[in-house]
Design a protein around this nucleic acid. Sequence first.
DNA 1: CGTCATTTTGAACGTTGTTCAATTTTTCCT
DNA 2: AGGAAAAATTGAACAACGTTCAAAATGACG
Lengths: 212, 212
Amino acid sequence: MSDARTTDRRPDLRTRLIDAAESKIAEKGLAGLKARDVTQLAGCALGAIYNAVADLDELVQRVNSRTLARLGEALAPASAAATPEVVMLALADAYAVFALQNRKLWSALFEHRLPDGVEMADWHRQDHEVLIARIGAPLAAIRPDLPADELRYRVRTLFGAVHGVVHLALQARLVGLPEAALRQEVAALVMALVAGARQAVVHPDRGAIPAP
Amino acid sequence: MSDARTTDRRPDLRTRLIDAAESKIAEKGLAGLKARDVTQLAGCALGAIYNAVADLDELVQRVNSRTLARLGEALAPASAAATPEVVMLALADAYAVFALQNRKLWSALFEHRLPDGVEMADWHRQDHEVLIARIGAPLAAIRPDLPADELRYRVRTLFGAVHGVVHLALQARLVGLPEAALRQEVAALVMALVAGARQAVVHPDRGAIPAP
DNA sequence: CGTCATTTTGAACGTTGTTCAATTTTTCCT
DNA sequence: AGGAAAAATTGAACAACGTTCAAAATGACG
């Protein structure tokens, strides 16, 4: 099924299909990805998809992996900044800029839902965790006292907050919201969160949450 | 087309269809909403949908409007808190709790995408703005010096941040992330943001954004 | 009761993703 | 080289989907 010999030429078709899917998503968005369009663009038969890949869902995941990799590259220079605080600011800013410059592909990362029971493929999950690690490093530098699992919560919160702002800004079409304004808002958000992270943590029990 | 006489009994079928759609979305999620299921549940013919409503998209929007209304009710008590800071905390906490208790319907609010050219219906857009106003009030109390348009930016940022955290927490299935932990994270997030809002605003030009 | 307007119906259409028997291509041994 | 076994590729066919529309059923009114 996946012999050492048989894998010689198969990547060609697979790659062509991923290329085609990527270009279709970039052009029309995730909802505009049709099996027949992709196969025509890749120059193969309709059913050929299911030789190279299990599903259209897997094809989307492969495109998303590429996007995550490119996002990782776009984020890499930020980690070289002097202080952890500036690293976080640079990360968030690079994230916003990447989203703005790759709207459709970036949106596909989060619009894609797989059918009910099925889980996300392992290789794709790992791509995500690489991203999370990149945010975790400077945060760990700011808060070396935090235990590992609590740090993971904080990273998720930080990422979720930045992501939410960018997502909301891109959803409402950009009319009236210039790129600079979004980057300003993201910067202000991160500064507030980083400043907050320096302060005392909310006490785990008896927190500031009102009664349900 | 929409005579005074003809509207007498039509709401009946319309309401039954919205009811059916709501229950289907609550059960199976937005992707599990099928025209044939809805009409069967509503006890009418397949094509009857298009007498009561323009589209399946409109049906979704009508369900989403209901959800937004219920969300508004769930958020209402929070506004009665003593200080604006506590109002914001209570709002965010109520938001998180609502999302947890109405996962599928809440997700449908943000998963739904209409076809390429079409805009969101006006009545649905207004529902959103009611929500934004509820967040804007306490923030305006905290920062009475902010001009109206900049306040709108801040509200969007605040909402986007909270929403992003909740969304991320719900997307990764709740295994291992108890409800209390999410509420803690949201509370910490809002506290940091409210504290940050009290401080000096980032200067519009020459901000903390690194060079692109 | 008959006529016209309105509402409701469900068969039919076009477009999806997916399957699979048939065909073509590649591989590998003699 | 030759030819048989294996693998890859094809595209017609299928099921499920949203939507349409001529026909049937229902309601309104003199």
